[in-house]
Computed example of a mutant assay.
Amino acid sequence: MTFDIDTALPILQERFGERIRRNELLSRHCTFGVGGPADIWMKVEKRQDLIDLVTLCSKHRWPILFTGNGTNVLYADAGVRGIVAQIALTSYTIEEQTDGTALLQAGAGVSWPSLLNDLAAKGWGGLEFGPGIPGTLGGAVISNAGAHKGELGQVLEWVDVLDARLCEETPIEPEVVRYPHADLALSYRHSRFRAHRRVQFDEDGYPVAAPRRLIEPAEVIMEVGVRLHRDDPQTLKAKISEYKHHRKVTQPPQKSAGSVFKNPPGDFSARLIEMAGIKGLQIGKAQISERHANFIVNLGGAQAADVAALIREAHNRVLEQFGVNLELEVELRGEWKVAPLS
């Protein structure tokens, strides 16, 4: 997959102006604080801009990677070739229904923690379990994010996506499709949008990035519909405060991408990693957190390769000692070793 930055740059600048940045370090755009440059980086703030961008990439065969706030991603030290576009659709509305509930219609770039303050003040419950989920609502759909016995799938009604799957083969304009709840294949830390993003491990135990498409992902989440219910504002604020405190005392303060591995059935990844004897293990400036073993933290100046090496060590040790094949929750993006197409 080739990309000529000098050809693409003036075309993109003509359409999107000063939003286009060249050789932007991705370490500035992810919570791990690691990652090399994107050839071109931009922020997409309007639905029509998103449609136009995908159409341009399909026409010119430019590789593009769409991302959110970078809370669940490990960018390679070599960066990402082509275009990286952050989904920043941040508007939302609350439509009260006759049955005492409300429908929240929110852009995929809306920050979950920021949204909660507004909902609580207005007495709308449904998402209060997630103040410790640092990402966007769009990113939360992909992994069916959850905490404190709640998950997004419990209140999610529909998702609007920009379907660019046919653009891979033919330079055409993508279409907007709405998936109802029943078509989202939601389960523990999984949705229909996760199926093609799973990271594998090679014979030596190193994480291997999923194959990259021309337009990645091929179904770009644009907007979500969430069912809310009436609740007492003070009760909601108290719950949010309690959950924030829990996060503060149980999770490390350093830069990280949250939980590295999914919990296996009937157990906890953190417990297995700690029992394997590698809690606190450090490679370079990355460390398996001393506070929570399912977090890898950046102690300052870490490289993506350091994080990947710790992922390998944790995965291998748990597999060897307990026979449990931990599944990676963090996604690898950029110039990594890539798994063969299946």
Rank of each mutant, 00 (worst) to 15 (best):
T67G: 12
G82K: 01
A140Y: 08
A121Y: 09
T67E: 14
A85V: 09
H60C: 13
L116A: 11
E128A: 07
A88M: 08
A108F: 04
D77A: 02
A78E: 12
D77E: 01
A76P: 03
Y75Q: 09
N69Y: 14
Y75N: 06
R81K: 13
A121P: 06
R61V: 08
G107L: 09
W62L: 04
D99M: 01
W62C: 09
G138R: 05
S91T: 12
A108M: 03
K59N: 14
G135F: 05
N144F: 07
L50V: 02
H60L: 11
G130F: 10
L104D: 06
T136Y: 06
G123F: 02
Q48N: 11
T93Q: 14
P131W: 00
A102I: 07
I87G: 01
Y75L: 12
K122A: 13
E96W: 13
G125P: 05
L104M: 07
W112L: 15
D99S: 08
D52P: 04
L53E: 00
A78V: 01
K122N: 11
W112S: 14
Y75E: 06
A145K: 10
P131Y: 10
R61C: 11
L89G: 02
G130R: 08
F66D: 03
L115Q: 06
Q97P: 04
G132S: 06
N69V: 12
S58A: 15
I142M: 04
N144T: 08
S111K: 03
G79M: 02
G135I: 08
Q48K: 11
G100F: 00
G139K: 11
L56D: 03
L53T: 01
S111L: 06
N144A: 05
D99K: 07
P113H: 02
A78W: 05
G130D: 07
A121W: 09
G135W: 05
L53D: 00
D52L: 05
H148D: 13
E95D: 15
F66L: 08
T71C: 07
C57G: 05
L103W: 14
A106K: 07
A147T: 12
G107F: 07
G70Q: 00
G82M: 01
E96G: 11
A108G: 06
Q105K: 15
D49W: 13
T90I: 13
G139D: 00
F129P: 02
A108H: 01
K122R: 14
S143E: 15
I64F: 02
I51K: 01
T136I: 03
N144L: 11
T93P: 11
P113S: 09
F66C: 10
G109W: 06
N117H: 15
D118V: 14
G123E: 05
L137G: 04
H148W: 14
P134M: 00
G82Y: 05
V110L: 03
I51Q: 02
Y75V: 13
G146K: 11
V73Q: 07
W124L: 07
V80Q: 07
T90M: 14
G100A: 03
A85Y: 04
D49K: 01
S114K: 15
Q97C: 12
A76T: 00
K149N: 14
L115K: 03
R61G: 13
A108V: 06
I83L: 02
T55G: 09
S111W: 06
